[in-house]
Amino acid sequence: MAYNDKVLDHYENPRNVGTMDKSDPSVGTGLVGAPACGDVMKLQIKVNAQGVIEDARFKTFGCGSAIASSSLVTEWVKGKTLDEAETMKNTQIAQHLALPPVKIHCSVLAEDAIKAAIADYRAKAALDTTKKAS
């Protein structure tokens, strides 16, 4: 199987690999997939006071398409508001990377990862607000 150039580029020069402090209240963490399925993605976002994603980091256990999908998502979400980032669809990722049908699940996982990270951030923020209120 030959890989698409964009997949190869993200795979060989992955953007934003790394880890942020998940206890930081401005950081949202999403961990999706399962080792038994051959894909696990960890995606983290750092959100500023205006609700804009300032930074994003990922680590992925998975095939080249899974690594490329998560790398691409970290690029795309930077500078977006949470609401904007939440509208991202796996089809956009799959289309951009020209993923073959057998690799579509990689893009689905990347969408799940960003949604999980946003949900995690919001849950933390809500908890924070409740604490402050009480």
């Binding site: 880890t19 399962a34 080792p35 696990v40 960890k42 680590k59 256990f61 996982l109 799940d112």
Partner: peptide, 21 residues
């Protein structure tokens, strides 16, 4: 790899509720 990172941090991967897909 997030798995490698977790193992280095002492996390038992079996203790995690993975969501299959």
């Amino acid at each position: 790899s997030p798995l490698w990172e977790m193992v280095q941090e002492g996390v038992d991967l079996k203790s995690i509720q993975w969501a299959g897909h």
